[in-house]
Amino acid sequence: MPANSALNQLPYAHLNLRHNPFGELSREELASLAEVDVESIVARLSVDRFAVQFVGEKGYGKTTHLLAIKARFAEAGYVHIPEGETAVLPGGRPTMIDEAQRLTLWQRFQLFRAAVPLVLGTHRDFSAELRRAGRTVETIEVEQRTDVHRLCRLLNARVEHVRRGAGLVPIVTMETATRLRREFGSNIRAMLHQMYVAFQELSEVRDV
């Protein structure tokens, strides 16, 4: 979109959208758009000594999985630990820690032995430590969970989320999703960046 079009029309009105769908979203929006299958996990999170950890590099969808689970539990306690900081452990069932590799040793000791179900998003595999604490552990490599069909649904869900009104909006095709999967593997963030640029360049509603 040309930088000087601000005074002529509402943002992205030419695409029948409100924003670029692949821009940065709030946590609430991310949770509402989470296109992940967490049903099997949700069912097991009623057990106190159960722990599930989503392991993977940044940009592969750990936070999205956690937020999707959080949306299913009104009593969940969630915390994201920023880099270089410590966080107070939240209460709640389940207890959910994003960036769990930043927990202190003492926090891990306390948390892993507490009688609450646990959900971790982490770069580091804690399965051995969790088992030593008497937990049943399920480890999910998030990189393995991004098939092309799910990816295509995820991308189009973002487009629908910023729809301006009735009528056509651009659609991300399966061919594009396949190409993105081939080019970027499971790195969702890199795919979103490329789609952001593609939507910036769209001058009218058409398939991408």
Partner: peptide
Amino acid sequence: RTHGRGNT
């Protein structure tokens, strides 16, 4: 509010 590539 801002929208785009950056945090809001």
